[in-house]
């Protein structure tokens, strides 16, 4: 039977090393299968997150040969297994153990975004009417499985560590889904500019490239949000009108 070697980060919050494990390879195997086999055979305490094993829950994010991917959707026959395959945790978040990182910051960020606030129902029975073409875009954003690979690859977070000032692509997509929801009446543009640091994004589109759900994060979510911020805060005509209104 064919074999492959996996070089996996082992260790805790401070100290870690790359340890090699060799295991059997069978047809159709994904990286997560290899990690599970290694767990069962020789490293019972090897820590990794996973749930659905079908690309639907976004738990098993990792960097495979340096590329941010879901382990459950990365087939071994799509990567070079003649060399040891490196598996490391996401680098934009603090390591906890082995392949596990502390992603709690993401959950805190989400709480800061104003919640959905619908308009009054359209019908007497308390329901709304929406056309499919008006929700296609929002549905694209709501495909997000919160794997945080876009956060991981975003240089504002990964290299510049602006976690305090910038919410990252995931939460810009989340905000866009709320802002473009046909029923929503809340306004989040002020927050985008002042609190969420939308200006930090310089549209390198790395997030879009790694999204396992194929969401066009930059073009469909971030750029339209940037335009809204510009429209609201920098439009000279609007500024003039605002000035007069104040008086």
């Amino acid at each position: 039977m064919a074999k492959a070697t996996f070089s996996i980060r082992r260790g805790g919050r401070e100290m870690a090393e790359m340890v090699d494990y060799t295991t059997d390879v069978t047809e159709g195997m994904v990286v997560l299968d290899a990690v599970h086999q290694i767990q069962a055979e020789s490293a019972g305490d090897l820590a990794c997150r996973w749930n659905c094993k079908a690309g639907k829950c976004g738990s098993c994010s990792a960097e495979i040969n340096g590329m941010p991917k879901l382990m459950c959707m990365t087939r071994l026959d799509t990567i070079d297994i003649t060399q040891p395959v490196t598996i490391e945790p996401m680098r934009a978040f603090p390591p906890v153990k082995d392949l596990i990182t502390d992603v709690s910051w993401n959950y805190e960020v989400k709480k800061r975004i104003k919640k959905f606030k619908p308009r009054k129902p359209d019908a007497d029975d308390g329901t709304w009417r929406m056309q499919q073409e008006d929700i296609d875009r929002v549905q694209e954003f709501r495909k997000c499985i919160e794997c945080f690979l876009c956060q991981d690859v975003c240089h504002v977070l990964r290299d510049h560590e602006k976690h305090q000032e910038f919410i990252g692509p995931r939460f810009l997509v989340y905000t866009a889904a709320l802002e473009m929801h046909p029923l929503d009446t809340e306004n989040r543009t002020e927050d985008l500019k002042e609190l969420f640091g939308i200006g930090y994004c310089n549209i390198t589109k790395c997030c879009t490239k790694v999204c396992p759900e194929g969401i066009t994060i930059t073009d469909n979510a971030i750029i339209p949000l940037k335009e809204r911020v510009v429209d609201e805060h920098y439009d000279p005509l609007k500024k003039l009108i605002k000035l007069f209104r104040k008086k």
Binding site: K115, F116, W128, Q131, Q132, V138, Q139, H181, D184
Partner: peptide, 19 residues
């Protein structure tokens, strides 16, 4: 189900705009 829509769920629609 309707309550989920009031909380932000975005279901696929019929031609007349219902769930």
């Amino acid at each position: 189900v309707r309550e989920l829509e009031a909380w932000g769920a975005v279901f696929d629609r019929t031609k007349d705009g219902k769930i």
